[in-house]
Amino acid sequence: MSIDIDTARKVAKLARIAVPESDLPKLADNLSGILNFMEQLNEVDVEGVEPMTSVTPMRLKRRADVVTDGDQQAKVLSNAPDAREGFFAVPKVVE
């Protein structure tokens, strides 16, 4: 499977990564290389094999319905470029 320049541009946009137009051909080429490498796996016959979800036979860990976390507004906001009155402040999002 090969990725063309338009697809590379779209993937970059969806991932919110700014890629200069001049870098797109190389990026498309790299992505295609990765996908082609992965496609070797298609040679394996997996007819009738259940997809494996974990390498160890573990049961999904659960927690009880108890409040054990939170009350740390200052910590939660400490990495924010801008925070006001307890809120994260971000450039205006217009709907």
């Binding site: 307890g86 809120f87 994260f88 402040a89 999002v93």
Partner: peptide, 15 residues
């Protein structure tokens, strides 16, 4: 929750 009417240039986010 995003609040859009507290500031003319910013949106405020409460998680």
């Amino acid at each position: 929750k995003s609040i859009h009417d507290m500031d003319p240039h910013m949106s405020f986010v409460d998680l």
